[in-house]
Design a protein around this nucleic acid. Structure first.
Lengths: 126, 126
DNA sequence: CGGTATCCGATGCGATACTG
DNA sequence: CAGTATCGCATCGGATACCG
């Protein structure tokens, strides 16, 4: 087949919606947050302690996005000062399996990537 | 950038190297480019035709990154005006399987995500 | 053909300050 | 405790122009 048929008629390309969804979930912090929530449900400041490098702004943003996409549930516990607990949804867990596979791949191929980078840099850098 | 405070904190989080590698490969265009090169080796302008929405700047950047990370090979054919062919490396193919899984997941879960978004927006929007 | 160089607006993210 | 609001910088990425 030629490229035009593959692009417009054949199997789905990486559709716009795909990219959009992946961007929502594979951003700088969401993956890490999801991973931590898979270990156990956590409160907001608990997450900050577990991920010391995240700012509250970014943590809030990541949690909102994950919540909006149905990856985590936000549970408000009405105590004197309110408590909020975040927990991974069933949907979020299905993603986690894939992420684990992806990270496993990254771990395994890392050495080869490192070699490729050195070869590239040596050839182009000087 | 910040220090590797998280890296020393205990068990491996989603390590810095993981994030870095994923960022290199899962960015806006690299995934799509890799996918197209998996179908068949392609030339630069051929890729632009197959992915009409990418600017040459972004395509160049994506290709360079993929090449540097050992995901694609750049083959220069010394004709009158030079021809350059890009093809997926063996390493790149191992990634493709995972990407397919990820896109498959995105396709399957998309409806549920859509519902989650509508519920979220309805509750928070007004 | 296969790029590079430059400008420039949009977005991401951290730091900081404030709030119910 | 669990956020919101604002700032300011850095990076991303499209548009345009030029080059071997």
């Amino acid at each position: 087949m030629n490229e035009t048929t593959a692009a417009q008629a054949g199997h789905p390309p990486i559709a716009r919606e795909h990219r959009e969804l992946l961007d929502q979930v594979l951003d700088k912090w969401s993956l890490l947050v999801l991973d931590r929530l898979c270990e156990s449900p956590r409160r907001f400041n608990e997450l900050r302690r577990v991920i010391p490098t995240v700012s509250q702004k970014s943590l809030t943003a990541a949690l909102r996005r994950l919540e909006r996409n149905g990856m985590v549930d936000r549970v408000v516990i009405a105590t004197r000062p309110v408590a909020v607990e975040y927990r991974v949804s069933a949907l979020g867990k299905t993603l986690q399996d894939l992420v684990d596979a992806l990270l496993g791949w990254a771990t395994v191929t890392m050495p080869e990537v490192e070699r490729a980078r050195e070869a590239f840099d040596a050839e182009h850098g000087e």
